[in-house]
């Protein structure tokens, strides 16, 4: 079992300090920010390394940062064998919101990534079934974006009053 700091130091030994950074606040769990292009590599290492063994992706969430005009993805990982946890975060610009899919590493990511695409609009490269999961396929926009404007009609039906 490792603390988040120990996990971060272990990762920097493997990947160097350029692509990773450790952040924590007074409240809540600390996290490691990962460069988007490195996320799949780091994820695979986290899952397979004998001292980390993160076999479970507990949650994957899409986030919108309207001030920075960025989108984010948060990964919450858990190891059932070593019972330690870590959170990863990835940030990408709104104009090019591409994040490599981790579906090939944790199957849980399949639906979670579809939800992040549906609600926030993060594009997951190499996802095997990259389409909306909750809203209908012909819906316009991503409703959990802070600047979301609802369409007035959907298939001729009013969405408002």
């Amino acid at each position: 079992m490792k603390t988040p700091e120990e996990i971060f130091n272990y990762l920097t030994n493997q990947f160097g300090e350029e692509d990773l950074s450790f952040e924590s606040r007074d409240i809540g769990q600390p996290w490691i920010t990962v460069l988007a292009s490195k996320i799949r590599e780091v994820s695979k290492f986290l899952r397979d390394d004998s001292e980390l063994l993160f076999d479970t992706l507990m949650c994957l969430s899409g986030i919108h940062y309207p001030k920075e005009e960025e989108l984010g993805v948060a990964y919450h990982l858990h190891s059932t064998k070593l019972t330690h946890n870590i959170a990863l975060k990835v940030r990408v610009p709104e104009s090019k919101p591409n994040v490599p899919s981790v579906e090939s590493i944790w199957k849980t990511a399949n639906w979670h990534e579809r939800e992040a695409w549906d609600m926030v609009g993060v594009v997951f490269d190499d996802h095997p079934n990259h389409k909306r999961i909750l809203l209908p396929d012909d819906w316009e926009g991503h409703p959990l974006r802070k600047d979301y404007v609802q369409q007035e009609f959907y298939q001729g039906m009013p969405t408002g009053e």
Binding site: L135, P143, M157, P158, T159
Partner: peptide, 15 residues
């Protein structure tokens, strides 16, 4: 959902 529910039809009598 009448005000902020983007996904809900505001009354089935619209359909």
């Amino acid at each position: 959902y009448w005000e902020h529910g983007y996904h809900v039809l505001k009354g089935v009598d619209k359909v």
